[in-house]
Structures are given as C-alpha cells and as structure tokens.
Amino acid sequence: MTAPAAAPGAGPGAAPRRDVRRVRFGHVLSSEWTKIATVRSTFWTLLAGAVVVIGFSALWALAFTASYDQMSARDRATFTPMLPTQVAYYFGLVVFGALGVLVITAEHGTGMIKTALTAVPRRAAYLAAKTVVLGAVVLVVGIVVTFASFYAAQGILASKHLDGSIGDPGVLRAVIGGGIYLALVAILALGIGTLLRHTAGSIVLLFVVLFVLGIAGGFLPSSWGDTVNKFLPSNAGGAILDPVHKSGSLAPWTGLGVFAIYTAVVFAAALILFERRDA
C-alpha cells in the first residue's frame, strides 16, 4: 500500500483572485422568486386554488339562496355574508397548502435540492428565502381570491337581498385575514414538506392536520372537547373568517395567532432537521 503523499503545495496559479460581488439575502430571494415563477405547477396550483375557493363560494351561495325560503329562523340567523367563503376555504386550504409542499418536495424528488444547496449552502438562508417568496405569493393571490370569492357570493345572494358589503363590521378584516391564513397554511405546508421530503406523504399529513383533526374534534365529549376544538389548527385559523366573534371559537386574531404559533413550531423543527440532515 502506497502511503499518501503529503498534500502538494500551492502550484502555479493557485486560486486566481477575482472580483467578488458580495452575495446578499436579496440574491437568494431573487433566485427563489425565479424558481417559483418558472415552473408550471405554481401557476396550475394557484389557479386550482382560485377556482376551488371562488367556485365553491358561488355554488354554496346558489344553494343557500335556493333553499332560503324553506329555512327555519334559527338557520337564517346564523348566516353572514362571509359564510360562502368560509365553506369554500375548507376545500381551498389544502390546494394552497399543496403549493407550499411542492416548493420543497419537488426539489427533493428531482434531486434539484443538491444542486440548489451547492449554490446556497447556508441552509437557513435558503429555507428563509423560500418561505418569504412562497408566503408573499400566496398572501397576494390569497387576498385577491378571497375578495373575488366574497364578491362572487354577494352577487348571487343579492337575489334574496342577503348580500352584505365589504364595509360591514368585520368583513374587510375577514377577507384580508383570510389571505394571511392561506399564506400561513402554505408556510406550514412548506415546513411539513421539509420534514417529510416527500410530496404525497406531506399532502396527506397536511390534509390530516387541516381537515381530519377538525372532524375528529367534533366527536369529543363537549365537557372538555369544546376547549380542545377551539385550539385545533383549522378551527383556530378559521376564526379569522368570521365577521363576528362566535362563541365556541377563539377571537379572530387570537385564533390566527395560535395558528401562526403552530406554523412556527413545525417550521422550527423543519429548519433544525434541514440543517442537520445530509441532502
């Protein structure tokens, strides 16, 4: 066995010095923006989210106005002009979440993550840039979609003079807050995707967290189940969509804050693992 020779000294022309433009976080952000804007799945996922939220909102408004005359006074009393949007959100959340999952799992699935991390080896900065870009995109699209969903429903509700105005108490807060909620859902999904590194598994887990937990919570005995229910992710986050604070749920911003804490916890776990794991 040949003994390894001593490391050779600097040969001719060692490390040519060149002008080095400093890389700032803005460059990483710009790179992540280019990434999200140059794959078709982004467009299709956002379009699907828009169609689902606006479409279900309109459908539900149609069904509600059609059966309004046969409704009991009690059912009529629980109605608010935001209700169609709230119903549509049940289905829309997972679609916007899927975008958050894909932003990271598509890179793991294709191997792009290895190329990307050789370009940006500071992983916290990498994940932060992804989060900021994803959050901003979903926030803007989410607010626009929520507005559209609100107005689509009001147009239909107007036939029974049930329509509300954006100026009604709590409505504007619900619409804007809804956009923030969607952005948080996308970031939570990015965290789950980073933890699991697998598209299908992450979407299933997201579905369980946002959908199944809420349904399962309904079966708990009301003595203590009511308290637990308030804090379940979808119930806490969904509180922001109520123009009026309903008993049995958290106050709107408190609820959204609780959801933000869940997101932060998942995200922190994701970041720690992302830093430690081999890519």
Binding site: K35, T38, V39, S41, A106, T110, G111, I113, T115
Partner: peptide
C-alpha cells in the same frame, strides 16, 4: 461541481 446530471427540476427550461 457536477455531481449527478439528473439533479435538476425537469419542469424548468
């Protein structure tokens, strides 16, 4: 570095 040529997102040009 070129590690594995397949380490790209095929949906991007």
């Amino acid at each position: 570095a070129l590690l594995d040529a397949r380490n790209v997102h095929g949906g991007r040009t």
